[in-house]
């Protein structure tokens, strides 16, 4: 099993969009190592020819008639927005500055 390094955890945190402090990173490397060692035991189970199970029951696609039904107003949808502008969610820049 691969050992998790501090660089690995920093990379995972970046993928998960969590800015960890140096102290948090340090703690997390140790804790995740212990947890991973424990959960890796799934690989010891007799699973060679076993069909993976993603869900407790067979999933079927569910559709509804294509008719309008009541939904949130723009005002309701924006009610929890950290920032809004002209009836839109206002977000920080999404492109790199040039």
């Amino acid at each position: 099993m691969a050992e998790l390094t501090r660089a690995d955890v920093a990379h995972l945190a970046a993928l998960a969009r969590i800015e960890l402090s140096d102290h948090e990173l340090e703690t997390m490397v140790g804790e995740l190592g212990i947890i991973l060692e424990s959960v890796a035991t799934v690989q010891n189970a007799p699973i060679a020819d076993v069909e993976p199970m993603s869900h407790p029951m067979p999933l079927v696609n569910v559709t509804r008639p294509d008719v309008r039904r009541p939904s949130l107003t723009a005002q309701q949808a924006l009610a929890g927005a950290p920032e809004q502008d002209q009836q839109r969610f206002s977000v920080p820049r999404i492109l790199e500055q040039d």
Partner: peptide, 23 residues
């Protein structure tokens, strides 16, 4: 979240999440 991100990441998916689904 970070554990889950790892378990689902490319190269580790089969060993972790995949095995867990078989269990």
């Amino acid at each position: 979240i970070i554990l889950g991100t790892y378990a689902l990441s490319s190269g580790y998916y089969d060993a972790y999440y995949g095995s867990a689904q078989k269990v």
